[in-house]
């Protein structure tokens, strides 16, 4: 038994150490911190970028606030694609990033798939349907889309009525997933989610009262791959990228 054990562990150890040194190939890729709402177009854009330049882009998708906190604490990302203008601006002011620019402008929508939700006049109407039990929202503290939705709900005086029924998701993508899997009846999410194949299974209403969400990107100062990172940020405004962004409702 002892001998078998030591053989098993020994070979696992050797295999692991031989197959890959501590810094694996993945460290050669560009590392991007990307706001969750932009996931679908981002995957297509990076595929196009890779085809053109042979540079791979590895993304971490999360809420803008979470990614921002990671960057402040020294997370090794090369570029940051936020869902607001605020946080990239603060990074720039702190000298942690290059000058931010707006790469996409998105909209907040109310999305659902129930019969009680679809076919209504507008989002307020859909939200006031009697059998709406739970509404999902991305955490307003960390997710700009959640913050915008909360602000509008307060503005039109619906927040207090809903408060006990609001489910807070970590990211706007998770808010969408809650509605898609039926955990909640409707959720405030990004227009881009509603335009994915899964999003087309339901219906959406643009929340007109919420201002368009201007999303800024920036190059991080400590990045060791400034040139590739710069190229990628430039690629975000290329005609190819613009076409992809348009199909997901960004402009």
């Amino acid at each position: 038994m002892k001998r078998i054990l030591s053989k098993v562990f020994g070979s696992i150890l050797v295999a692991l150490f031989l197959s890959c040194p501590w810094s694996s190939d993945a460290s050669e890729d560009l590392k991007a911190a990307v706001a969750a709402n932009f996931m679908a177009p981002f995957k297509e854009i990076t595929a196009a970028f890779e085809a053109e330049t042979k540079v791979k882009v590895e993304a971490t998708f999360s809420s803008t606030g979470n990614l921002y906190a990671q960057i402040i604490n020294g997370a090794p990302y090369d570029v940051f694609l936020a869902a607001d203008e605020e946080r990239p601006k603060i990074l720039f002011r702190k000298g942690l990033s290059g000058e931010p620019f707006v790469y996409a402008t998105g909209r907040v929508v109310l999305w659902g798939m129930g019969k009680n939700v679809c076919g209504r006049a507008n989002w307020k109407d859909a939200l006031s349907a009697e059998d709406i039990r739970k509404v999902a929202l991305a955490n307003p503290e960390t997710a700009p889309y959640g913050a915008a939705a909360q602000q509008v709900l307060k503005q039109v005086d619906l927040w207090r009525k809903l408060e006990g029924r609001v489910v807070t998701a970590q990211t706007v993508g998770q808010a969408f997933q809650y509605a898609l899997t039926g955990g909640v009846d409707v959720s405030f999410c990004a227009l881009s989610s509603a335009l994915t194949p899964q999003g087309k299974k339901g219906c959406y209403y643009v929340v007109e009262e919420a201002p368009p969400i201007r999303q800024a990107a920036c190059l991080l100062k400590h990045s060791a791959r400034q040139k590739e990172a710069q190229d990628f940020l430039r690629f975000l405004s290329s005609p190819k990228a613009e076409t992809i962004k348009k199909t997901y409702g960004y402009h």
Binding site: T60, S62, Q70
Partner: peptide, 22 residues
């Protein structure tokens, strides 16, 4: 660790994210 590919994205986090993104 956050969730950085090849560095700190361990299997359980990848599963969580896969579920989160359907």
């Amino acid at each position: 660790g956050g969730s950085i590919s090849g560095e700190t994205r361990v299997a359980s986090i990848a599963i969580y994210e896969a579920v989160e993104t359907m």
